[in-house]
Amino acid sequence: MNIPHVAQTLALSAACLSLPALAQAPADGGRLLASNCFQCHGTNGVKGGFDSLAGKSQKELLDDLREMRVKAAGSNLMAPHARGYTNNDLYWIAYYFSKLPKP
């Protein structure tokens, strides 16, 4: 991965999405972090029981996650689940899935 280019792209994305300043990227590009989603959304975000995540834009995924975080906690499992990750975690989870090939 070309680190300077990615850092630049991420800085732009951060400004667009009004996220807090990003911490350093995970060493594995977010793979282990994002694998928390595989049990329900499938290995690499495809063919799981729930929504496919692979190849969706980072912005779309982050918008969905942020929307879920503010829902009432007891209504849908994803609401408290999304609240269990930091904003920075969600940034890199969304980043990882956005780089995966669409089903």
Binding site: A27, L32, L33, G84
Partner: peptide, 16 residues
């Protein structure tokens, strides 16, 4: 030969 990256060390549980 790399040390384990303990940043972003996250696990989850979801159970119906």
């Amino acid at each position: 030969g790399k040390s384990v990256d303990t940043a972003y060390m996250v696990a989850n549980s979801a159970c119906y």
